[in-house]
Design a binder for these strands. Structure first.
Lengths: 350, 350
DNA sequence: TAAACGTATGAAAACGATTGCGTAGAGGAA
DNA sequence: TTCCTCTACGCAATCGTTTTCATACGTTTA
């Protein structure tokens, strides 16, 4: 006796009516007598009837689709991305959408395979942040061709015509570096990451422009690339033991900033007196190290909310051409103990 | 000219054959001539044909279903849960499954609504960790009744007959407390959480048994309940300023342990000389505070892997009755600076 | 009274893929 | 020639739901 889910047919049989009548009754159509309607609805509720979304979506293939959106995240175990996912999920959930999620693990192959799975599952749209590895975009174009909307967040793709939600990386970096200069730092180093990513370029540009605005020359020796954990330990000591050592470090993310902090500690450099350090993301790590890290608040949750809103909006107006939206989430500098305080006599002309 | 997805029908029309022939060709049946087969496959590949999973799943309603599993997580922005999700996703992905994920935000209402959505989407099974709020289980029973397998992880439900994957909370707590006692601590306090959760009870029992085994009386005044952030700040100072103050704190999670560490710092108590502190989870926070936190490694990733394996196994053998499996993931104590070193002359009889 | 209309329901097609069964035609065996 | 077999395909049902069209019966209107 295999108990299974109740369908509209079972209900029809129960009442000796046609399935169409049951369907209408459940949709509260006024073409069904009130009595029958009530009986059918009561029966359905009592038996926990849940319409089969597969069937509904299949029938409305070119209309409503699955009310499911696909989300690609480079890595789950990551503060910023967790926040974004949380924002997406909360927003989608409120609007009646489910989310299907997968991690690319920073490789193009995974990303491609995920896009295929999402396509097979007939998601209404995809929200994605690029893997570090990704240099070609055919797997996205394929979905765009068949009018599936895509929204990029954080690590966007500038080659494709899609909506994007980004943090104002440039302004965030500019503000942070400008702040450190105002507190008296003169040689600010940049601890960056892979330069193919748009975010890396933007943060680097913000860094450079802040220097220029303050009439400080850009010194390429002060621009490092720390791709993976441990890189800072390899590269920084040489720089910090130099007689011309930097008096400030601006890191592209909090993890690298923290590693830099450790290196300073190991080299007996005082933070912030000898070296100021500023990170990016304002993740939990900033509040628990000693001294606490100054960092740029990235508002991941808001990024997720905006991305979901834009995507769902696109998905629900499929008839029209997809409207491209670029949303920029403003950052805020959160000052803590790893940077110097602003001098009192500072009449900032800006 | 609305470009849309290519279906099996379009291919059939293209070649002037029946859809059944196309289907067989794509499945490499030998009932189709090699030439036609090759042409059809080439054409399908060139046009990025992806079989519509909705249709396939609908047809195989009582057999294969959707190759999608639902995952409920109390909160996304949480180290342990991120690890679990990562483990689930990686495993599921390798086995060709997609995951649909939602956060309960610790409320029963959300959990219930999510289960309904998962049911409508016809997921093959659900992996869930209970919300703190949940005290009734009808929403789970409903799915179990129609033979949808459920696997609980971490915060399990003992009232339902389902598979479970848990961390060995008892042993983890026992080992941690036992360790602190061996290093010389005599008054160990427990900073717990809501006691309705199974994990809270187990960790508390491990704590108590470690005391008893070492012939230390349990003192109820040393058992505190810190549910939300800030509670430790409210409750701990009183305890720590007492002349009879504890010389060790065992916290139910790392966040509370860190808060305790802060309180100690504020009260000018040295950690670990005056007070040893041990947390639970071995999250990133443990490595970045000062001193670094001793903690119980919870192996979230492995929890996720096991949960996914068990669930998929259940889902794929639907004909048989669901086999209930209880998997216990062993913990390890990771000793760091927030606890005393083990004395050298210790001949641990255990 | 006959025509028109309204109400409540049924029948059937459609969405896309799979699969059991049927069959036309080619070729071989008796 | 007749019968059989094999190859290579087509037909149609199926999954659950929605929606268009059709229709039976009762009521109103001209």
């Amino acid at each position: 006796m295999k108990q299974t889910r109740i369908t509209i047919k079972d209900i029809a049989k129960e009442f000796g009516v046609a399935v169409s009548t049951v369907s209408r009754a459940l949709h509260n159509s006024n073409e069904v007598s009130d009595e029958l309607k009530k009986n059918i609805c009561d029966y359905a509720a009592a038996h926990h009837y849940q319409p089969n979304m597969l069937a509904t979506s299949l029938r409305n293939c070119r209309v409503e689709r699955t009310k499911t959106i696909g989300v690609i995240i480079p890595k789950f175990v990551h503060y910023f991305f967790s926040c974004v996912l949380s924002g997406i999920e909360t927003t989608a959930s409120h609007l009646g959408y489910s989310i299907m999620v997968a991690q690319s693990d920073e490789t193009y192959e995974n990303e491609k395979e995920i896009m295929q799975r999402f396509n097979a599952a007939r998601v209404c749209g995809v929200i994605v942040s690029l893997a570090k590895d990704t240099k070609q975009y055919d797997h996205f174009q394929e979905l765009l061709n068949i009018k599936v909307p895509i929204v990029f967040y954080d690590r966007i793709c500038t080659e494709l015509k899609t909506s994007r939600v980004v943090v104002d990386d440039y302004a965030g970096a500019f503000e942070a570096v400008n702040y450190m200069i105002k507190t008296g730092c003169r040689r600010v180093a940049f601890l960056g990451s892979v330069m193919t990513l748009e975010i890396a370029k933007n943060r680097c540009n913000g860094y450079k422009d802040a220097l220029l605005k303050n009439h400080i020359k850009i010194d390429d020796r002060l621009i490092l690339q720390c791709d993976k954990q441990g890189d800072a330990h390899l590269l920084l000591p040489k720089l910090l033991l130099d007689k011309d050592r930097p008096d400030a470090l601006f890191a592209i993310n909090d993890d690298i900033a923290f590693e830099a902090l450790q290196v300073c500690r190991e080299l007996n450099l005082d933070v912030p007196k000898d070296v100021s350090i500023c990170g990016f993301s304002n993740s939990t790590i900033t509040k628990v190290c000693n001294p606490q890290l100054t960092s740029v608040e990235q508002r991941g949750y808001d990024v997720g909310v905006e991305a979901a809103k834009i995507l769902i909006n696109n998905a629900e107006n499929k008839d029209e051409d997809i409207k491209i939206k670029n949303k920029i989430i403003e950052t805020t500098l959160v000052v803590r103990g790893s940077t110097l305080p602003m001098p009192l006599n500072d009449n900032d002309g800006n």
